[in-house]
Amino acid sequence: MALTTYVEAIRQGIWEEMERDERVFILGEDVGIYGGAFKVTEGMLERFGEMRVIDTPISESAIVGAAIGAALMGMRPIAEMQFIDFISCAFDQITNFAAKNRYRWGAGVPIVIRGPSGGGVHGGPYHSQNPEMYFVHTPGLKVVAPATAYDAKGLIKAAIRDEDPVIYLEHKYLYRRIKEELPKDDYIVPIGRAAVRREGKDLAILTYGAMLYQALEAADVLAREAGLQTEVVDLRSLLPLDKDAILSAAKKTGKVLVVHEDTRTGGIAGEIAAIINEEVFEYLDGPVLRVTAPDTPVPYSPPLEEFFLPNKEKILKAARQLAAY
């Protein structure tokens, strides 16, 4: 059977949902004729027509606002941000309109806002950001970040079917670099559920997005070099977090390292450390450590970006430190 890339998996997920439910439509910049800057929507214009695959002006706030309005009318819009960095232009619509609507008067806003995030492709400060925490800090939103093709498809489907606004972060580094065989049948990956990617009892690495692969490589090295069995947990969903998965990894190993590509201060690692502290402190054999990007914008020059991004070596250093407890 053919292997499906991460980007194809997103496309398949959207495609199947559009086939299944005529309320689903997509709008964004260059999503029609061009098929999206990263080709996520390639072929959709031909299949679904211009009423459901809508090229918009460069107006992120209008893209999200229109998605909200259509959702209130019973539609299931998917709003594409050409780069997730430009989601900043739609901040008000997302955090004030979409996020707070259900709480105020019970009218949910079932929209998906998706786009390419993350670094590693020399995109510089405005084409590499990881904006998850702006939204994780906003009650009423959901935030997901798939790392595998299977999850990319299953989570986009879950996001489209969800009754609430979902920010769906695609890691652009993964688009064409990873592939796997996907089931033929319809499936979803439930939002709010982490996945254990590697079992281990000596320490646990919790991560998501492109950093999953750095963590898995580090785990291999730890096994080879030190005989350490590292559990690797892919969070997949940042809001809501899978508390059970986090706590059970902490209880099982007593040593937790959180890894994310996002910057350090206010990153999800701090939240996870607090949850572990509050709930399973007595199981810990060492401090919850974190490996993250430093508190700077994402720099452009290759040696700077390499310094900025977490990687296998940085994870190994922290893991060895943690293992020593």
């Binding site: 430093p294 700077t296 720099p299 020059s301 290759p302 040696p303 700077l304 390499e306 310094f307 900025f308």
Partner: peptide, 8 residues
Amino acid sequence: YPPPEETL
């Protein structure tokens, strides 16, 4: 190229 620490 810049030295890596320029990042900070």
